[in-house]
């Protein structure tokens, strides 16, 4: 008997598959919660009891994190249990699904936004002069999202000009406001 193909992980909108997708997400979140709770419980157990300071045993640092970990552990078990009952643990995810997810325009915009923003705030800032990093980021962001395949040269130039002017004005305004007005040493 041919093995039945698992339902795709892709969330194609509000449909039955979307619910399956949510159950899969809940299953994975539940597992993550169980892991985090277990980790916090172990860490809390190993926190000092401060006996040498003669502190009350119920005021030790690990007691509240342990309490919270137990509550999250219960929530994790509920999530895992109910997603297993709904079949969320069986929902598959293969290379075709990944390709389909990446082909969705919304997801492409999301990935491009994430790459540009994290590249700017996480990499450029602190390693490049602030004005240069900010100018590059704004220029690239506008160009990346306003560029269209088959765009006329004139249109492209106009878009580049707008992006450039916006980058210069915003960079100058933000840098001046924070450095001169709010006396912040720019990164």
């Amino acid at each position: 008997m041919a093995r039945e193909r698992a339902a795709p992980f892709v969330c194609p909108g509000i449909s039955g598959a979307w619910f399956m997708c949510m159950f899969k997400a809940d299953f994975l979140t539940g597992l993550a919660l169980l892991l985090v709770s277990a980790f916090v419980l172990i860490e809390s157990w190993h926190m000092p009891r401060l006996e040498h300071l003669k502190v009350h045993p119920l005021s030790v640092p690990g007691i509240v994190p342990a309490f919270l970990a137990v509550v999250l552990l219960v929530f994790g078990l509920v999530l895992v249990g109910r997603s297993i009952r709904a079949g969320g643990h069986r929902v598959g995810f293969n290379r075709d699904d990944l390709r389909r997810v990446l082909a969705q325009p919304g997801n492409q915009r999301l990935l491009l936004t994430a790459a540009l923003t994290i590249g700017y705030a996480g990499i450029l800032i602190g390693n490049t002069p602030y004005w240069l990093a900010t100018g590059i980021f704004i220029f690239l962001f506008v160009v990346a999202f306003e560029w269209r395949r088959g765009m006329a040269v004139r249109e492209f130039r106009r878009m580049g000009l707008v992006a450039g002017i916006l980058a210069i004005i915003i960079t100058a305004a933000v840098a001046l406001a924070f450095e001169r007005l709010f006396l912040v040493t720019l990164p």
Binding site: F141, V142, F178, F182, P187
Partner: peptide
């Protein structure tokens, strides 16, 4: 939004940094 959101993100970044000047 393609012109507004980069400005918003620039403010998110500098605003987070400005409180204690920490990357």
């Amino acid at each position: 939004r393609t012109r507004l959101l980069p400005v918003v993100f620039v403010l998110c970044t500098i605003g987070s940094y400005a409180i204690t000047n920490r990357i």
